[in-house]
Each structure stands twice: as structure tokens, then as C-alpha cells.
Amino acid sequence: MSSQTNLSDGPAGRIEENVGAADLRHLLELATLVTAARDAMSDDIVTRMSSAVNEGLILLDRVTRNPGLMRLLQALERSECQSLLEALADALTATSRELVSDPTGSGAGGGLLRLLRDPGTRDTLRLVCVLGGHLSRNLEAATKVSVSPGGSGAPL
């Protein structure tokens, strides 16, 4: 019997048995990736990333602990709101461009009349009026709940 120790019989051999060559190669790749990422980082990158994480955390905390904002987000998630949001986004873009191209507007009273003749303006005014009606009714209902003796008494 040889007195020499065979490494493949020891812990290294057991690792070889249990971990295939491909696995070891993947581990090596991962280690190289970590080293490469570490070498590519700088104090400035870490500071900027941490700052973004910090602001993100604060924003997330504020939103998730604000029942009003959470309700708004839930409402905005509904599919029927998506077209409204997209239209709003497009309208904001078009408005900002229009204001840049024609900052002074075209006449006071006449310009306003021309705007009111535009079917798009009339649709938007209707939307605002409908929204205002719903808002008013919801506020009235919420006020009744908050002041009724059986209500929660929680502030609006």
C-alpha cells in the first residue's frame, strides 16, 4: 500500500465528484464577472446609484403610505384609464410644442371663440365638466361620512 496521499481521494476529489467541470467553469465565469464589475465601479458610481436608491426608497415609502395616492394609482391602472392617460400625455406634448411655436396666441376674444369652435376643445370641456361633477359628488359623500356620528371621524 502506498503511503503517498492521493489528492483525488481527499476533499478536492469529493468536490470534483459532486461538481462537474461545466459547473466549475460557470463559477469561474461568475467570479470573473464580479471582479470585472468591481474593477469598473468607482466611488462616484456607487454614490450616484446609492443616491437613486435612497430617493427611490423615499418615494416608494411616501406613495405606499398615502391612501389617496394609492387609490389614484389603482384607478389609473384600470384599462379604461389607459387611453385617457395616453391622450393626456400626447396632449401635453402637443400643447408644449404649440406654446413654443405661437407664444403670444392669436388675439384675445377672437382667439378664444376660434378655440371654442374646435370640436376637440368642446370635448375636453365636456370631460372637465364630467370630472368636476363626479369630484363634487364624491367630496360631498366623503364629507357626510366624516361628520356623521357613526362615521370613522378620520380627516379627509
Binding site: R38, M41, D43, T47, S50, S51, V53, N54, I58, D61
Partner: peptide, 23 residues
């Protein structure tokens, strides 16, 4: 080590979450 240095650099920013009671 360097990782702890970056942890400290990160904490310099995350302090503001910490005082708000988040961390």
C-alpha cells in the same frame, strides 16, 4: 476591503432614508 468602503459611500446617501425612519 473595498466592498466595505462602498458600503460606507452608499450609507452617505442612504443616511437620508435612515433618518426618515426607513432603514
Amino acid at each position: 476591503n473595498k466592498s466595505m468602503h462602498w458600503f460606507k459611500m452608499s450609507y452617505n446617501q442612504l443616511y437620508w432614508s435612515s433618518v426618515r425612519g426607513l432603514l
